[in-house]
Amino acid sequence: MSRLKTKEEYEKTIGFKFRRWLYGEEDPYINKVEMVKQHHRHVEEKTITERMHEKQMHREYTYDVNRNKVLKTYSMLYRIASVVFVILIAALLVYNVSWLPKTGAAEKAVNNEVPQRYIENGLQETGAVNIVTGMILDYRAFDTLGESHVLFIATITVLILLRNNKKKATIAQISDRRFEPKNDSILQLGAKILVPVIFVFGIYVVLNGHISPGGGFSGGAIIGAGLILYVSAFGFEKTEKFFTERTYKVISFAALATYCIAKSYSFYTGANHIHSIIPLGQPGAILSSGLILILNICVGMVVACTMYTFYVMFRKGDF
């Protein structure tokens, strides 16, 4: 029996909170985490000539090697010491390399029983023809989950650091928006021809990660490059229709959560010796190798969104 919840009841659920967080209506850390307000820094307005003069003064003061004897000695000593240090490091490393086993030799300490296990049993245990993919997304899937989170956290940090305040947006940032697109017909024609091809190729690389060279990271980087080409040809007016900050949030969250749930199931069944219901399929077919295809798609989406977000943030600090 289902029933409709009242408004008060609905407002207590997790779904409502998630929805508010998603739409940016509420900051979950207000009244929970004490935010120390940053010390206000007084910036006096200066003309360009004043600023140049001040820069020149600073430069002379910093590198006044003619009069400042201590600075001169110190910088001399520092340079000599660092050159000696670097040469020492290089000599030490090259000396060590000369004692390593020969490049391309089969009898090395690194070629032990671990790669042997991966090569001999990898296809049967993971179902992936590409042994490297089977390794990074099945045997060492925790590692790849950590990598995806590193990318996600780096993007969030870049968002925090480079986002500009919409109220205080400078004229340069606004004009960057106003004069887009630049209507470069060569770039637009090239983008029209290339972008679909790049997208199709990127999707091919992501989907064929388990049966040919490629995978989520490389395919995602290709799709991200296609998005960057598109935005530099046609401007933000067009990309805003399908990619905003909310899209980034949704895609990244969904991909990371799917990855997490899928791998939790896999680890749970593996650790408790329960038979997993996910079939491995025919090796070499596109719908094979169990969870690896799904995980590759998740990783590809995270990487593509990350590349595009980095570009957008470095270009103007706003979606």
Binding site: P115, I119, E120, R140
Partner: peptide, 13 residues
Amino acid sequence: QEVTAYINPIPAG
């Protein structure tokens, strides 16, 4: 699927 046919996959990962 013999070890003697392939290079070491671990450094790639």
